[in-house]
Design a protein around this nucleic acid. Structure first.
Lengths: 124, 124
DNA sequence: ATTCAACTTAGAGCAAACTCCAAGCATTTT
DNA sequence: AAAATGCTTGGAGTTTGCTCTAAGTTGAAT
């Protein structure tokens, strides 16, 4: 069984346009085509796409995701460098989350000001 | 005491270019100028900029930050709408953090695969 | 057989957020 | 006084990640 581009788009809350764009950028070299050239996504392809969306949604640029895909296709000789990519990316995600938590404190402080009516926001 | 644009840039890890861009976009209408036209940032201005960076770093678009600044300048009649903006934005930040936590699970799973050598990444 | 929906491509267009440049003042140092 | 540094502006250029259009093909339904 395989999926059309619009079925996949629906599943991942993307547009077919976006998926074609990802393909054009080299993120989906493994997706097969029918004899008339139509993309046929397998379950394995969906797993790949899930990972691609995960990396994208955590802030990895498309070029770096493409690099990762290329390393995957190269086989075991790139295992260590791929592992390092995940380690580095994980660190960045944790940093980003910590930054968000920190910024949230100021947002909560502002909200407390608004809620207590004790509102001398910041202006002179 | 006041600060020059490059002192402020240093303090906030921005470039002077970026700060001028923010000014041009209407984010810094409160910053005074010397008689020769040079920006003179007060401590209060730094507080404003801190909030602007907080909103920007948590994903608020510059246009919306500009809207917020305009509401501030309009005075107390916009208090409730500003409070609502912070409430809505807080909700989005929490959603974003939850998404990151969720995505982190897959990253951690991949790392576990690499670390255990049990590496059948995803390809067919 | 024709119509319709969904697929294909190349390539143009767009919005956001910078980033930089040229040309010109202002202030401080030599 | 001249040079160096740092500020100013308008406006052009860049990058990223889409987003859309036009023209065409395919395959199923009427």
């Amino acid at each position: 069984m395989s999926y059309t581009i619009s079925q996949v788009a629906e599943k991942f809350d993307l547009t077919a346009h976006t998926i074609r764009y990802y393909d054009k950028e080299g993120l989906l070299p493994f997706v097969d085509r029918s004899k008339s050239g139509i993309r046929e996504f397998s379950d394995s392809d969906l797993e790949w796409l899930k990972l691609i969306c995960c990396l994208k949604n955590t802030g990895m640029p498309i070029k770096q995701i493409k690099q990762y895909i290329e390393w995957c296709l190269q086989g075991d000789e790139t295992l260590e460098i791929r592992r390092q990519l995940f380690l580095d990316h994980r660190k960045e995600v944790l940093k980003h989350m910590a930054d968000l938590r920190e910024n949230l404190k100021l947002i909560d402080f502002k909200l407390k000001m608004y809620d207590t009516g004790c509102n001398i926001p910041v202006p002179r």
